[in-house]
Design a protein around this nucleic acid. Structure first.
Lengths: 135, 135
DNA sequence: CCTTGACCCTATAGCGACTATAGACCGTAC
DNA sequence: GTACGGTCTATAGTCGCTATAGGGTCAAGG
């Protein structure tokens, strides 16, 4: 069935996650403690691989571990309405868009500040520090 | 000279910084420990106010406390070349621009994922979860 | 004079999402 | 047998705060 049998390092390579991070996900209960080998090594099956891949993908999309926990919980309650998933996604998108807007405003200011330096001067007549200084 | 005499709460209000944050800046050595009143209250002068205002402004511009420390150190070494200030600013700008690009790529994906939901379904046939799931 | 309330003090722990370190065990190739 | 890479646990550190507990100080009002 869920045939293959991975050590934590295999899982790490297969998902692009660091070994310590996988163990961290276990300690916070995001993934279940797997079985152990004779030598007390963690042994994962393909279900664990799929779950971790999903988690990684969500992290790449910028979801928080809290969001991911909700998405994983929802994904197993097949009768709940899909709307809840969409709400999480939409809220996250809104956050990302806000962050972009904030950073763009920041970049405008930083460019203005940066161009105020025309090189060669000393700190004592530094235009950048003037530009940063309030008033 | 540096006439006025502020309690920490006054400084907080004047700069839009929380009291605990000011004390935190003191513990990490970003601002110097000020004098104390009879009752052991911190007492700040206008130089401290200016320094904290500068720090706040830099934080609003997204500089790390490490960067701010360097900027403050540089600002007192009046004979050093201004280039070092510009380098810090330029590096920060580059980071901000990279973050914007990353977030924009993310937003594109999230919008694609979000529009795959057409409402009313249940988790079992949720297109969003499909869209997030790798492969 | 006493109480109330707003302010101040220190010390410590917690947040998110890891990352780093120390010290030990396991398993295979030479 | 020993060197190397992988695994184990436990603990502390990162960044920039924020929260909590348990006090002391001070001015105004009753």
């Amino acid at each position: 069935m869920s045939g293959a049998d991975f050590k934590i390092g295999d899982l790490a390579r297969a998902t692009g996650t660091k070994v310590v991070t996988i163990r961290y996900y276990e300690t916070i209960g995001l993934i279940a403690p797997p079985g152990r080998s004779e030598a007390n090594y963690r042994r994962y099956d393909t279900a664990a691989l799929d779950r971790l891949r999903f988690i990684r993908r969500c992290r790449d999309l910028g979801f928080s571990l809290g969001d991911i926990r909700e998405l994983l919980d929802l994904s197993s309650e097949t009768e709940r309405p899909c709307d809840e998933v969409n709400q999480i996604t939409a809220a996250h998108l809104a956050e990302v868009e806000k962050k972009i807007a904030d950073l763009q405003a920041l970049a405008v200011e930083l460019r203005r500040i940066s161009t105020s330096c025309h090189g060669g001067g000393t700190i004592s007549n530094c235009r950048i520090l003037d530009a940063i200084t309030p008033d």
